[in-house]
Design a protein around this nucleic acid. Sequence first.
DNA 1: CTGTTAGCGCATTCAG
DNA 2: CTGAATGCGCTAACAG
Lengths: 338, 338
Amino acid sequence: MLKHQATIKEIAQQLGVSISTVSRALQNNPRIGLRTRERVWELAKQLHYRPNPAALVLKKKQTHTIGVVLPFLKEEFFSTAITAIEDALLGYNVVISQSRDNLEREKGALTTFLSSRVDGVIASISAETHHYLHFRELENFGIPVVFFDRVPRNVPAHKIRSNITQAAKELVDFLAGKGLERIALLNGPPQLEVAEERQRGYLQAMNERNLPILPQLICSSDLSREDTQAKVHYLLSREPKPQAIITFNDYVSLHAIEKARSEGVIPNQEIYFASFANLPMMEYAHFPPIASVEQFAYTMGQQAAELLLQLIQNPASDETPYQEVWVETKLVIREPGV
Amino acid sequence: MLKHQATIKEIAQQLGVSISTVSRALQNNPRIGLRTRERVWELAKQLHYRPNPAALVLKKKQTHTIGVVLPFLKEEFFSTAITAIEDALLGYNVVISQSRDNLEREKGALTTFLSSRVDGVIASISAETHHYLHFRELENFGIPVVFFDRVPRNVPAHKIRSNITQAAKELVDFLAGKGLERIALLNGPPQLEVAEERQRGYLQAMNERNLPILPQLICSSDLSREDTQAKVHYLLSREPKPQAIITFNDYVSLHAIEKARSEGVIPNQEIYFASFANLPMMEYAHFPPIASVEQFAYTMGQQAAELLLQLIQNPASDETPYQEVWVETKLVIREPGV
DNA sequence: CTGTTAGCGCATTCAG
DNA sequence: CTGAATGCGCTAACAG
């Protein structure tokens, strides 16, 4: 039982040298004699010495910790992004916090991050988030914030995003190519820029193809299963019924399809479903959306981490412009004949 | 732009009092006059003062941080457990690290935890982990470690576990009740106690029911899709073929079923599949296992967190016995007529 | 009721 | 080549 983490002071005492000698030796400072350095290193190893990060933080003003807030870890899109962030931020501690699509939780996470003096923050905002003051506060303290995927709307910030507008157009084009006309949009919370973009792309494509834009076929869910299914019920009771429904993401799609089936609809036959994310688990789903926009979660996480790293290293003066990085998407079609 | 976190020193200077007065006032120490306390609090608020945790750590020897290592965040069982841990450990920072079923990564995570002086660790070991020295090292430094679900085999430790042996028996009983006799076991890595328990329960139940125990129908996967599918190929080429396959968990089951289908088997008709975990996503799977053991991930995470909290608070002398907590399981049958 | 001081573990400046 | 002294932000024992 050691029960105690060794300090340079102890090493110094045992070796009969001064603390600063040990400190320097441990940093392989050439000013310290080779012989001494070796002795110090040896004893350090023997005592399982590890520098106390708290002391380092106090001196260096850098915690080597970054905070990540995102809605749900259980969504594979986000857990994959986390993996990328971990990989890109080797040497940093990554503290993760789930907002669970709740603004108050999100604020709480940021407060914790501020208190613990993280060096930077990566965020994907909650479905409830309609202002970004809590993020701005971090920036006021010089802590850079990079958003990915769910970025705030109409707000200058560092953003890693997919070209959702374009992807939404491709989705409409694909469905229209199948001869479908009444295409509905079951979107996510309007305060999310990614929702606005879906709608923009949807409208553009519908217009370009001279398809009818029916306001009653455009609605949005707060992403809960209940709300999604209520909206599906609403859509299915319109006249004429939609022939296709584009949903905010694969989870919404799954919930939507479940509801549609319970109302007697045969998915991707009577009504086509298409969505965003292209989660791996869709491969095993009974009734997956027929098409989904692959969003490359790993790449997004990676880009976010790399940008943050850059912002942390370069002082980030007040004049530094906000960066926007665009990540490719890819339309994945699931042919029915499996 | 503030760009600078205020300190008690600054507050003290601006108020013309001493540092310790401020420190005490902020702790609402009654020794400080009410008037002074109010002034301190007010200025602190105004300056957005937040205590520097690094300084606190240096004094108090407590980081209020706990580390969690587990195989994959993207497995819903684990992300749910994390959520429970977060909920139970309010006020603590939770640092998460994925081993990705890799021993070296697991060791790396623990080294980081040791360096950063976490107050405790919660772990679910990797598929490769066959010794626990890296965990013992933390304990040698007085850092308590609680394992959940994937606990090390034949090693005294704090463990939160399901009664897997019992659950495995129920699984066999269920399948035998359907008149099936040749029941195979596609298990996980043998070094996991949870794998051993599956086998124990399987063997017991098979024996009690006088069913044939065929060694060639018992094998284990390293949990990768490839290995799982290779083992399925092996099982399907035995003579006589198994009538049912119990798999390590739902993911293995999904991969197994996928392979079986590609070999022309109709799942849960020609060959029945049953497994552990009962992931919510199974509800949407095309060919889910017919039965799955619900393991209550949230409860397990919660119990782990609560036990850890207790260990952190109670000094944990060398005499403290290792605790074992058992969490209920529940057999969930998915009736085919959906 | 309040101030002074020491010290947590470490890097670093200034002296030898 | 090495040591002494200082300070990072904070608490707490000791002194008034």
